[in-house]
Amino acid sequence: MTDPLKLFILAGEPSGDRIAADLVQRLRARVSLSLSGVGGDELKACGLSPLFPMSDLAVMGISDVLRRLPLLLWRVEQTARFIRSTRPDIVVLVDAQDFSRLVAQRLKALGYAGVVILYVAPSVWARAPQRAARLAPLFREVMAVLPFEPAVMQRLGGPPTSYVGHPALAERLDAIEPPERGPLMLLPGSRDGELRRHLPMFRDVLAALGKHPTIDGVVIPTLPALAERLRRETAAWPVPVEIVSERSQRKAVYGRAIAALCVSGTATLELALARLPMVVCYVMDSHQARAFDKLGRPAVSLPNIILGRAVLPELVQAGGVADASISALRALLDNKKARHDQILAFGELSELMQSGEPDFPRQDPADRILSHWAGIQRLSTLS
């Protein structure tokens, strides 16, 4: 009888938790699995008992990181020592780029020689391309969720990289016509700092647009752990807000929604694959704003990045986002053709995400993990 695959998997935020859970489910359909690591609700539902709370790692922006730096450094050390002592067959670090890199560096310093895989490529194409080559000694492979990333990593001398698609592909909807009326979706982010900065702005947007003739209800899809907080914080908003925390309900809501106002992040890709027109926004802290300006204010929404053109309006700044969001969202709600144009572009995006690029076609992430495990088993039989 074959021993189970001993997998250590770490996710640092909800989007990574979903990606990690998808991988675990794919692997469990094919092999026996012994699971350890760090994750949130989705990995817990897969049977993971986290080494520590995933919320310890969910930080965004320099100020958030500085406030929690001692804890983060301790979690790096704790994670690396746990991996070294338990010797899993394969370590998969999902996104959480800075934390994952520090863990991989610490493992190397501790003399750990096991297979370490980074799932979700760092955005070397957006900033600091020299980082790609620095990752080569740390990771056996990178599994990318954006179709253009393997070619970029290859060109920059990074680790071997494969394109494995994204769990958001499960939200794909066939071509649709924009409805005349429907719910407005609001996605304010999931990190504490994002919610603090965006919820007041979203309230102002609703005060201005909540009675627009195309809007039939307002819905915030969120994580179960955030549902009660959002119900409490939106209770006094000028328009009633429905909080949806069950993932199984989201696709149906997306299919009848009129449009969305969405904080930049993975959710923009999910909405695009569900063919839901949107305006993308982000309220930055002062450190983020300075860094963003230094980078030349690049595109931030995944649909725009993947397609290489401005399909979606992006409103990213340290302040004054409410007025700009009201104007952009009103223009989208007033113009059915603008919504239809976004839906057409999302169809192009969907096909590219589904198939990958010609030189780097989409692969099953479980296949990539199992290929490494097969190599480990071959070596063990020879030794």
Rank of each mutant, 00 (worst) to 15 (best):
D359T: 13
P70A: 15
L23C: 04
T79L: 06
P200L: 09
D285Y: 08
P224A: 10
A121P: 02
P365E: 12
E42M: 15
I376H: 02
A80N: 13
L261M: 11
V218P: 00
P277W: 01
G319Y: 05
I243W: 08
E180M: 09
C281D: 03
Q354W: 14
P188F: 07
D341L: 15
L315N: 01
P159D: 14
A168E: 06
R172A: 11
L72M: 06
G165I: 01
L35I: 05
P53S: 04
L223R: 14
A310P: 01
G210E: 08
A128F: 11
L187A: 13
L107S: 00
L57Q: 01
A338K: 15
R297S: 06
Q363V: 12
T161H: 02
D192L: 15
R275A: 00
V300E: 04
E357Y: 06
S371T: 12
M284S: 07
D216I: 07
V263E: 08
L187K: 03
A235H: 09
P213R: 13
V263I: 09
P213L: 10
Q288R: 05
G40A: 13
K336F: 04
T2P: 13
D293P: 03
V316P: 07
L93D: 04
D341K: 11
R309I: 07
S63Q: 08
A151M: 12
D216P: 01
E77G: 10
P277S: 15
A126C: 08
D341E: 15
V311G: 02
S350P: 00
A267L: 04
L33M: 09
F202R: 00
G61T: 02
G40I: 15
P159E: 15
I19M: 12
P238D: 10
F139G: 01
P14V: 10
P221E: 01
L186K: 07
G296N: 05
L226N: 06
V65M: 09
L370Y: 11
A322W: 00
S371C: 10
L66N: 06
P137S: 12
L169G: 03
D17K: 11
R231L: 13
V115I: 14
F52W: 09
P147V: 05
W237N: 02
P150C: 11
P150G: 10
E77Y: 09
L7R: 02
M54I: 11
G320H: 11
L382M: 14
Y254G: 10
L273T: 03
A109F: 03
R87W: 03
V321G: 00
D367Y: 09
A272M: 02
L69G: 01
E141V: 09
T214E: 06
R232F: 07
P188T: 04
E246N: 08
G47R: 08
